[in-house]
Every structure is written in C-alpha cells, then in structure tokens.
Design a protein around this nucleic acid. Sequence first.
DNA 1: TAAATTCCACGTCAGGACAG
DNA 2: CTGTCCTGACGTGGAATTTA
Length: 271
Amino acid sequence: MESIVEENGSSEPLSGSNSQSQQSSESGGGNGPTTAVLTSSGGTNIVQIIPTQSTIQAQSVIQQNQQSVIQTATGNLQPVTLPKGVLLVSSKPNSVIHTTQGSLQAVQIKQESNLGGNVMTDTNSEDSQSDDDTSPKKRRDLTRRPSYRKILNDLGGGEIVLSSGTLQLANAQGEPPALHTISGGGVVQYTQGQDGQIYVPLGGNVQLEDQSRKREMRLLKNREAARECRRKKKEYIKCLENRVAVLENQNKALIEELKSLKELYCQQKSD
DNA sequence: TAAATTCCACGTCAGGACAG
DNA sequence: CTGTCCTGACGTGGAATTTA
C-alpha cells in the first residue's frame, strides 16, 4: 500500500463534487486552515493538502513502504496544521520532513478511519493496465457493434413522423437524434382508429415505455458516472505530475546534500 | 482567411468488479 | 445470479491552433 500526500500552493481548487472530503477541503474559502483530502482505493491513498491559511509552497510525498518525506519547494518549512478529522495518511511512524536546506524533522503520521473509501484510481491497477497491452482486452474493436446514434443516423433517425402503417424515426436537421424516443429500434407498428387517433398495441407499448425509461435511466447514470470518472482521472494525473515534481525536487536536494557532505569530508581530510 | 490539424469534453457501449 | 458502479475504448462535435 502506498500513500501520497501532496501539498501545493496553487490557487486552483480541486474541481468536482463527488468526494465529501474534497468538498471539505474547498470549504475553507481561502481563509481557513490548511485542509487535506484523503482518497483511497485499492492499495493507494492520495492526499492533497490545500493550504488555505497562508501561501505555503509545499509539496509532499508520504509513502508507507519507505521513509516519508515532506519537502517544501522554497526550502523553508512551515508547520502544517491539519484540521481535526480531515487527514491523515497511513502509518509509517517515523517519517521526516525534509527541506531543501537539508534539515530534518520528525513527523507523526496518523490514520483516520473514516476518510477512506472514496475515489482515486488504484495506481497498481493502472500501472498493470498500461503494462498489459497484450491482454485479450486488446480488443473487440472489430466486432464492436455500432452505436445507437450511428444506427439511428443510418436509419435516418431523429424525430417521429408518420408514414403508412409505421411510426418511423426521421432525421431532424441539425438536431441530435432523439435516441430515447422509441427504445429498441426505429419502427413501431400502429393502427389508426376512426377518430383519427393512433393506437399502438397496449402490451407492446407499456413494455416499450418501460424499456425506454429503464434505458434512459441507465444512460443518465452512466453519463454522470463517465463525467465523474474523467474528473477523477484528471485529478489523479495531476497528482502524479505533482509527485514527479516533488520527487525531482527531492532528488535535486539530496544531490546537493551529498555534494556538500563530500566537500566537507574532503576539507576535513585535507586538514 | 479558409482549410487542416490538434485538443478536449462528451455520450455511449462493453465488460470487469463487487455487493446483496 | 442479478443489478449497479466504474472505467477503457470509441466516435463525435466544437474550440483552438497551425498551415498554406
């Protein structure tokens, strides 16, 4: 299991609405204390700390399986106060805060139980996915059936018009086809009464309406789910990019530290 | 400036994961 | 087993950018 804490001073708030913890992070409105977001899924926790009280330029990475580091971009580290009940990350107790000036400070890592369980894609699964290009999932492209949109377009679909003996989907110029108008296809048999009314066989009609409603609901939910999924994915990518930046900074700082230690050593040796 | 290209967000489908 | 959720893949349209 891997945990990441990310702090950034960027004014860009976390977009989106699915995660309650994220909403709590936004509720500071720029004047509250530093707030944090913990998201977890599978083996991964990703935390974004949004400094809303002062402009802390800090980025952090806390990883369970190794010594964790909090490193500021500017080199000076302000204590980060985490509001009660908001954070925290698992569980490596003896993590350190590392600044680019080389000072180290112990940091206590706690775990809050009621924060997990929302969002963030498991990095392991994503990694394995990218490694898994050869899987049979790659893919049903050629057998994939055409979308309803395409089918309807092929049918000339859009709005309902009457033609002899059928209700047919016709093309509405410039408008998206009404996919849900009639479920399951573009043609419905009907009869015309003496009063001029259109009668569709009752059983079929009810069934069609029910199917149509269910399909509409399913599509609506899936639409929202897809939107949410994209939002999370973007957020996750942003997290990874931040992490790269943090690790690069760390690397740079450690190289500098090594360099100065070497110099010190050579100096003492020559004395 | 119009055409071509790239980028981005969206809706939909399919299939896996998971809970009940 | 069934229903629901999540997410990769695909196709599409519109905005932004580049090119001739």
